[in-house]
Amino acid sequence: MHSTSNQDYRNDDDCDNGNHAVATNEETTIPDSIACPQQVTDICFHTTKPAIIVGDILGKVTLYSYDDEGKVHELRTHEHHKKTIRCVRVTADGQTMFTAGKDKSWCKVDLESGALLHEQSKAHEGAIYSAEVIDSNVMLTGDEDGVIKMWDMRRLPGPVMELKENDDYISDMVCHDDRKHLLVSSGDGTLSCVNIKNRKLELQSELFDSDFLSLAIMKNASKVVCGDGDGTLQIFNWGEWGNVSDRYPGHSGSIDSMLPLSEDVICTGCEDGKLRLVHILPNSIESIIGSHGDFPIQSLTLSHDGALIASASHDEHVKFWKTPDVDKVTVGSHSKRKGKKVGKHEKLKERKAFFNDL
């Protein structure tokens, strides 16, 4: 069955403004949704080819391709991990895949041959929760205990950096284009900036009431957006990490994933199962561009040509959507809205325990 087109979700009542028309590339063919045998935990498009990589709850990583007619083909499966896949990442040149899992290990795989290039078992004392790839030689991992490690393939077997500056799980990591600064969000409600070159913490925000779950660097790296467990986008000025410069409530549940589409527009994946197109500063939820029903959006990824967004949820499906034409997004005149922090959702406190039970 083909994924539903974006048009079906544009006037959802949950939008701030239902009158915004978001243009898409009508020539793009939407691939069939992928019905997976197990719950999907992370996805990542191939960076140079029409292909997508899917990690599941049993530790399997599967590579799929899709053609011009929208047909999806399973290519191969890797079973290097013994427990849940937490992260799948592909290097910019498309030659290498890194995977990390709950089994505390990470693997480096050649995407052309499928050969396992390296397996780092017992990489952390706690289960790995997030990862960020700098290039084919350098990767960072964050675990459930708040530990961050940097790995250089040329200097294995140990990490070249280890930091313990957080009291809870490392939920997301995003590297600046300069490859010198790493932004880190944590379940303890903080945003941290790590100087990769100097291998030390540069600054950490004050402690917020809600978990920080997802990150995006916006506005030509002048702003950093954090999605939190209360459905609020917390916006920081670059370099001013102590406190937010703006906040934008509006999501009906935790913002579990974010995907920048331009310097001004992001796609958010929410606990309520909806993918939203959001304009940042001025702040406005422009439209609903997809849905997984009532299942939370676990992961978002953008295709190598920018034409497709893929999303994964607890419904055991990977769905594809046409990327909206962000250049034609018009922002509502009354869209900017601020609000005070609200109490943390109790179920967000059980987020880590949920994965552990699985």
Rank of each mutant, 00 (worst) to 15 (best):
L191N: 02
C226M: 07
A216S: 15
N195W: 09
S222G: 12
L213I: 06
V225D: 03
L207D: 14
G231T: 03
I235S: 05
E206M: 15
I235Q: 04
L201T: 09
N220A: 12
S210C: 14
F208Q: 03
K197Y: 11
G239E: 06
I235E: 00
C193A: 14
I217G: 05
C226K: 03
G239C: 08
K219N: 13
L233Y: 04
E202C: 13
N220G: 13
S205Y: 04
N237S: 12
C226A: 13
I217E: 01
D228C: 13
W238G: 09
L203A: 15
N237R: 11
K223G: 05
S214N: 07
G227R: 02
C193G: 14
V194T: 05
R199I: 01
N237Y: 07
A221T: 09
L215G: 00
D228M: 07
N195I: 05
L191D: 01
N237V: 04
E202M: 12
S205R: 03
Q204A: 12
Q234K: 15
K200M: 05
L215S: 02
D230I: 00
C193T: 14
E202W: 12
D209G: 12
Q204L: 09
S192V: 04
W238E: 09
L191I: 04
L207Y: 14
S205W: 00
E202K: 15
A221M: 07
L203I: 13
E202G: 14
K223N: 09
G239W: 05
L213V: 06
E206T: 15
K197Q: 11
K197F: 10
W238H: 13
D209I: 10
M218T: 10
D209P: 13
L203H: 14
L213M: 11
L215P: 02
V224Y: 04
L191R: 01
S222D: 11
F208L: 08
S222Y: 11
C226Q: 01
F208T: 03
F208I: 00
